[in-house]
Design a binder for these strands. Structure first.
Ligand SMILES: [Mn+2]
Ligand SMILES: [Mn+2]
Ligand SMILES: [Zn+2]
Ligand SMILES: [Zn+2]
Lengths: 148, 148
DNA sequence: CAATTGGTTGATAATGATTTTCATTTTTAT
DNA sequence: ATAAAAATGAAAATCATTATCAACCAATTG
């Protein structure tokens, strides 16, 4: 899962170390596949490693995001939220955000169709705007089941 | 453009008034069709109306967003950015964000195709998740022309 | 018209997430 | 072992956004 040799190598190649705080933070993701805020991650890590500080959590999240191992999102609740990259553990998916209660729904129901569409679009956009596309986000906003 | 009777009526119906600060702020959008931050809007308004405060800018942006006249975005630079809703002046479009220089590109090149696709997807998702979809955002991240 | 009501505002303080600083510790290279 | 480079925790600083509150203004009522 997380904390394996390939991860270690991946960081090393970029000149970083797979330290204990970094492993601990990655393990939180592995245990809790949600959209976690920095504080939530800090609190979770803190139970097992009271020595690890909040600043380190922020630094690590930033590092993992830069390396593409973690995705950073803003769902509009005033704090950033993070999720393991599909490459690492979850399958690729998009989001629906309930603007009433804040619930976030991962969906991957029609991904084959979506991926195909996005792929084509990326090719056209890249060409037309000379823009190298690395990733994308699709968010639907509205009201969930319980909030209608 | 902005500040016309339909706008006035629109606000009145919701129990609000089209005051001078609100008009001034809407005029900034009309003059400057970019993705503006609250502070940028404040500074622009401030040149003509030094009396209008930053808090009022925030309040107004919030109001206009709630009313659907303005869209609020987070492009990852640590501040919210706002844009007139397509309904008001611009045509519907999506975004490409350069993660190196922060440039934001509006594109509406393949909108017919995209809208059609999104529409279908919304129907399927709404049904499957009992989720009422009101709006969506599509963001592509990568490096722009000059940043490759 | 005068009084009342409720929306609006500017100035200011407060909040809260994120970043920076800096001295110290840990790891790596020589 | 020694020097250089990374990483860390604690605390302070930053900075966008929100809350407070007294003053203001527009619409309504009698
Ligand atoms: Mn997700
Ligand atoms: Mn735009
Ligand atoms: Zn909801
Ligand atoms: Zn760029």
């Amino acid at each position: 899962m997380v904390g394996r040799p390939w991860l270690h190598g991946r960081l090393r190649n970029a000149g970083f170390r797979l330290t204990l705080p970094r492993q601990a933070i990655l393990n939180v993701f592995a245990r809790n596949p949600k959209h976690l805020s920095a504080e939530e991650i800090f609190l979770s890590v803190h139970r097992n490693y009271p020595g690890i500080g909040l600043a380190t959590v922020y630094r690590t999240l930033d590092l993992l995001t830069q390396m593409g191992l973690v995705f950073k999102f803003d769902f509009g609740d005033g704090r950033s939220r993070y999720e393991l990259a599909s490459e690492v553990i979850k399958e690729h998916h998009h989001h629906m955000v309930c603007t009433r209660c804040g619930q976030i729904i991962d969906y991957s129901d029609f991904m084959k169709k979506e991926i195909k569409f996005i792929k084509e679009l990326e090719v056209e956009l890249s060409k037309k705007h000379k823009f190298k596309i690395n990733s994308h986000q699709i968010h639907f906003y509205g009201s969930c089941n319980r909030c209608q």
